[in-house]
């Protein structure tokens, strides 16, 4: 192998440890399985947890898609993809969701539904939803085991009293299979419902915090909410009450990035670039 580097970079012991952890993560949906988390040649916080999962999963017959903020071409996605291509000779990469067997993503779940033969790996900066109410991991582990989330609910309730809204914007606490509450990684609230009853296995990897957790296919995933204050996804309606559309593909259902164009106008575009391009191709035949 080039540079004398093992296929998929990690030595086989490291891969086996990750594989054992992944299996426990699936068996205990939403539980954060600790693992040793080797140092990767990119920064902690740049997706090393997701990367270690991908490297422990990937084989020469896989087709990989890497996205960041929904885009295949953002610097970090390119960087991760190049590293995986370099260390995994024989694999294919793609930007088309439909062609991928393995998808590594930061901050988004792809716009279109995943299939049963695909695996989604999400990069996680903060794995524990309880960290906002309890700094000690020792205590959090007991709270999780007992499914004691009263303090988290109180926090949400205080929000409602103060702002008349739940102010958690992303990393929305979500209860898996009726027991563990997870931090679903910094995906927008728009993506949270996709965790529920997913066709594909969804794996979460936190490199710096050394945790792996999973939402198995066809699993219950419920964002925390109250009967009278429901969970709400991001609102993209304009001042006339119309759903904003992507300026490139005109989709009125996708999650949108907002920015200011060179004329100083506020404009919106799909965050998922692959979806947006496919919509444009459909429109132009």
């Amino acid at each position: 192998m080039s540079n004398g580097i093992n296929f998929a970079f990690l030595d086989e012991y490291a891969k086996r440890e990750i594989r054992r952890s992944v299996i426990k993560a699936i068996c205990i949906p939403g539980y954060q399985v600790p693992y040793s988390s080797r140092e990767m040649p990119m920064g902690r916080g740049f997706g090393t947890g997701g990367l270690q999962l991908t490297l422990a999963l990937i084989g020469a017959d896989d087709t990989l898609k890497v996205i960041d903020q929904g885009s295949d071409d953002s610097v970090n996605a390119v960087n991760l993809r190049k590293f995986i291509e370099m260390t995994c000779p024989g694999i294919d990469t793609t930007t088309h969701l439909q062609e991928a067997t393995l998808i590594q993503s930061r901050h988004r779940i792809p716009e279109q539904a995943l299939r049963a033969d695909q695996i989604l790996v999400l990069q996680v900066p903060y794995p524990d939803a309880l960290v906002i109410v309890e700094p000690s991991e020792d205590k959090r582990k007991i709270m999780h085991g007992e499914a004691d989330y009263s303090r988290l609910l109180v926090k949400l309730y205080e929000d409602i009293v103060k702002f008349d809204e739940i102010t958690i914007s992303h990393r929305y606490p979500t209860r898996i299979n009726g027991h563990y509450i997870i931090d679903p990684s910094p995906i927008p609230r728009y993506d949270v419902p996709k965790l529920h009853n997913s066709e594909a296995l969804i794996l979460f990897g936190a490199g710096r915090e050394k945790k792996i957790y999973a939402v198995p296919p066809h699993c219950l995933a419920e964002p925390l909410a109250f009967d009278d204050v429901p969970f709400r996804i991001e609102d993209f309606t304009d001042s006339h009450g119309e759903r904003r559309a992507c300026k490139l593909c005109a989709s009125q259902t996708s999650f949108l990035d907002e920015f200011i164009d060179q004329q100083g106008e506020r404009v919106y575009q799909c965050s998922d670039s692959d979806f947006c391009e496919q919509q444009q191709e459909l429109a132009h035949g």
Binding site: G43, F46, Q69, V75, N76, T167, H170, R171
Partner: peptide, 29 residues
């Protein structure tokens, strides 16, 4: 050092999606 410098550096990466969610919550409230 490897953990802390990595995480400090990661804030230089794009956070468009989460920031969009933040703006949505702030505007709504």
């Amino acid at each position: 050092g490897i953990d802390s410098m990595g995480f400090a550096s990661h804030y230089k990466m794009p956070h468009y999606v989460t920031f969009q969610s933040d703006m949505d919550r702030l505007r709504t409230t």
